[in-house]
Amino acid sequence: MKLFGLLVVFCCLMGTVKAQSQHPALPTLGKNDTIKTYVTLLDNEMVPWIVVPEVVIRAARIFKTEADRRAFNLLRYNVVKVIPYAHEAGDIYRKLQRDLAMTGDKDKQKQLISDCNDKIKALFKKDIENLTISQGDILIKLVNRETDITTYNLVKDLKGWGTAMIYQSIARIVGHNLKETYDRDEQHDIEAILQEAGYDSYRN
């Protein structure tokens, strides 16, 4: 009888161990365990999902000469200076496109375009006049990166073909080209600076 009882107990213990191996027990919660999270069953254990911020690893830039270093630092300064203007211009232009798509009224559309032109003029009037030639050239590129259209076409949409031609002629005198586009491969230094600054556009 005692032998039979021992066998029963042994079988019960084995069944419990087997059940535990098939269905792992929930972790014991402490008084501070109040954060809910998803878990994954891994090797018979429940492992919580932990989301960590993205880590971007970039190679250290090595300059051949001190002149190269100074040139790159100047480029970084100029890019960072004009980023806000390109971004703001992109926001204004995208809003215009959405507003135009919401109405078929020609008079309303003309008013929307006029309002957009006034906003961009107010944004750029004071500071843009003080930009250097290099900064202006970078701004033209970044406007294209931000809006996917050239500065020339942006002016044409807002002010008309004739005004765009006049602006292009003036720009060419000082060495600019409003029809210039942005190529990420060709402008790899500018692109690296933008990525390092944590800046991106709606085109991505």
Rank of each mutant, 00 (worst) to 15 (best):
L3G: 01
F4W: 10
G5A: 13
G5D: 14
G5C: 03
L7G: 06
V9S: 03
C12M: 13
L13H: 12
K18P: 00
H23F: 09
L26A: 11
T28Y: 09
T28H: 15
V39M: 14
V39P: 04
D43S: 01
N44K: 10
E45K: 15
M46V: 13
P48T: 02
E54R: 12
V55F: 07
N73H: 00
N73Y: 00
Y77E: 14
N78A: 14
V79F: 03
V80E: 13
V80F: 01
P84S: 02
A86I: 02
E88V: 00
G90H: 01
L96V: 05
M102H: 03
D105K: 03
D105I: 13
K106I: 12
K108C: 10
K110R: 10
Q111D: 08
Q111T: 15
N117R: 15
K119T: 05
I120N: 07
I120W: 01
A122N: 15
K125E: 14
L131K: 06
L131C: 03
L131W: 02
I133S: 04
S134A: 15
K141T: 04
R145C: 11
E146P: 09
T147C: 08
I149V: 10
T151E: 09
L154A: 13
Y167C: 10
Y167Q: 03
S169A: 12
I173Q: 14
I173L: 07
N177E: 04
D185I: 11
I190L: 11
A192W: 01
Q195S: 04
A197D: 08
G198D: 07
Y199L: 10
D200H: 10
D200Y: 09
D200P: 00
S201Y: 11
